[in-house]
Write a protein that binds this DNA or RNA. Structure first.
Length: 130
DNA sequence: AACGTGACTTATT
DNA sequence: GAATAAGCCACGT
């Protein structure tokens, strides 16, 4: 513990760091999704920061759309390809997922088979009976 | 700097 | 059970 108050910079950096950290986590988590699996915004949001809203995850994706982040493996809690319209072509996302071996249910991903739980237990965390 | 918008989710009506 | 409201936080105008 040599120095802990080296706040030479303004506090602005702090908030900036926080959000960058959040994005980074989101990227990491998204990248850690194995091929043939998908995850949801809510899950990632919780793992990236239990306080952040799932919306930010989507935003992070948009920001990371140019990175190596497989955004197509991230869908909403309903398994719907909500962000398909952001891939350049509405059908591109579905194509990518299909190429990964992911099965579809109409316009949505078959979550029951492809929902990737990063570290969550087999049982839902707060979902009721579901 | 206020306002609107958005790749979400949950609760209420 | 579909429609509406509200919470969430960052970003562009």
């Amino acid at each position: 513990m040599i120095k802990k108050l080296v706040k030479t910079k303004s506090k602005t950096s702090e908030s900036q760091q926080r959000k960058e950290n959040f994005y980074t986590k989101v990227y990491q988590l998204t990248r850690s999704i194995p091929k043939g699996k998908v995850s949801t915004y809510g899950t990632i949001a919780e793992l990236a920061g239990s306080r952040v809203s799932a919306r930010m995850v989507g935003y992070a994706m948009h920001t990371a759309a140019n990175s190596d982040v497989p955004c197509h493996r991230v869908v909403n809690r309903n398994g719907e390809l909500t962000g398909k319209h952001h891939f350049g072509h509405p059908d591109l996302m579905r194509d990518l997922l299909l190429a990964e071996g992911i099965q579809f249910k109409g316009e949505s991903v078959d979550m029951q088979k492809h929902f990737y739980d990063f570290a969550k237990p087999s049982k839902s965390k707060k979902r009721k009976s579901d």
